[in-house]
């Protein structure tokens, strides 16, 4: 029996999440793993937007910021449970993405990149300057999610690191599953069609503007959830989460690993999350190594690491 690409991707992902902890020499590796998964969720959203629909966003950290601060503020000011705050953050992100995207995505070309750039900077400025609400650049405490205590009550006792590793891993698998389903759905086909050629897609009856908007809103929700998980895990968040560099990081991760492939993008997230940890001794050269890796990948492996390597392995390279 031949596995479908979708099942294979999910299986590989689940196996990696489940098996790697057996090789962890200390609890610290759970933390790194959880960070990779959090970034992986955001990057999966980028795959939907950039890999499927061919649109570029330079402000996705803005949505991560909204997700993160929803978890910090909603439980305190609205009395919401942190889990519901994640949903609220995602909803706000979706509505904002819809409002920003609706006029922009009617246009062809790179307008979305410019608009999202402005949007991201705007969110970051609001988080920095609305001190009375967000406590400004020094950051704000985020309430405990409380799920670990519930699981403990059921006899499943995990350390904080272990809990976040498996919880974020689970959400990542869920996110990847949804994204893969989307890929095979009529919407996914329409997105891929307009990625190839907007005119051709329009000719065969694809509502190009609506499809692009859908992809943008969905990817904003992914970024928002990733921001929420980061905030809940760290129990403390600063406006850095919405910073321009974080937006660039997301795109870089996806492009490095392979923006057309979910597994590739997650691999990219893994590499770029691990790199600073491995390079602590060479902290001064971290940016240099990053830039070099990026340039080499762009020159020699234009589709990104994973798709290029798979193609070589199959022997179907140019």
């Amino acid at each position: 029996m031949k596995l479908s690409a979708k099942t294979a991707t999910l299986l590989v992902l689940a196996l990696m999440i489940a098996v790697t902890p057996f090789f962890f020499p200390s609890g610290y590796y759970y933390r790194v793993g959880a960070l990779i998964f959090v970034n992986g969720i955001a990057v999966t959203g980028i795959v939907i937007l950039t890999g499927y629909a061919g649109q570029i966003s330079l402000g996705h950290a803005g949505f991560a910021g909204i997700g993160a601060y929803a978890c910090a503020l909603a439980p305190v000011h609205l009395g919401l449970h942190p889990a519901l705050a994640v949903v609220l953050g995602a909803a706000i992100s979706a509505v904002l993405a819809w409002l920003v995207g609706r006029p922009i995505l009617r246009l062809k070309g790179y307008y979305l990149g410019v608009a999202t750039l402005g949007f991201g900077i705007l969110v970051s400025m609001v988080l920095n300057n609305e001190r009375d609400l967000t406590r400004g650049p020094d950051g704000i405490d985020v309430p405990e999610l409380g799920l670990r205590a519930v699981l403990k009550g059921w006899g499943l006792d995990m350390t904080n690191g272990q809990f976040w590793y498996f919880f974020c891993g689970l959400i990542l698998i869920l996110g990847a599953w949804l994204a893969l389903n989307l890929y095979d759905s009529p919407t996914g086909r329409a997105l891929r069609a307009l990625h190839g050629s907007e005119i051709a897609a329009r000719t065969v009856g694809v509502d190009v503007a609506r499809m692009k908007l859908q992809a943008f809103v969905i990817s904003a929700v992914y970024a928002s959830v990733s921001g929420s998980l980061l905030a809940l895990q760290n129990k403390f968040i600063t406006p850095d989460v919405a910073g321009f560099m974080h937006s660039i990081e997301m795109v870089t991760m996806a492009v490095l690993g392979g923006v057309g492939s979910i597994l590739g993008a997650i691999l990219g997230a893994g590499i770029l999350t691990l790199l600073p940890q491995v390079l602590t001794v060479f902290a001064e050269y971290e940016q240099l190594v990053l830039g070099l890796v990026m340039m080499l990948v762009m020159i020699f492996l234009r589709e990104g690491l994973l798709p290029s390597i798979l193609r070589r392995l199959r022997g179907t390279g140019e």
């Binding site: 200390s26 609890g27 610290y28 933390r31 790194v32 950051g139 980061l230 403390f236 600063t238 989460v241």
Partner: peptide, 28 residues
């Protein structure tokens, strides 16, 4: 970066097994 600081703090505690931590240049 507060997120990196948390990761390094975890590393110091769990992996390097230090007896005390100095640091946190910024409030975040």
């Amino acid at each position: 970066d507060p997120n990196k600081a948390r990761t390094f703090a975890t590393r110091l505690v769990e992996d390097d097994e230090v007896v005390a931590i100095i640091g946190g240049t910024t409030t975040g």
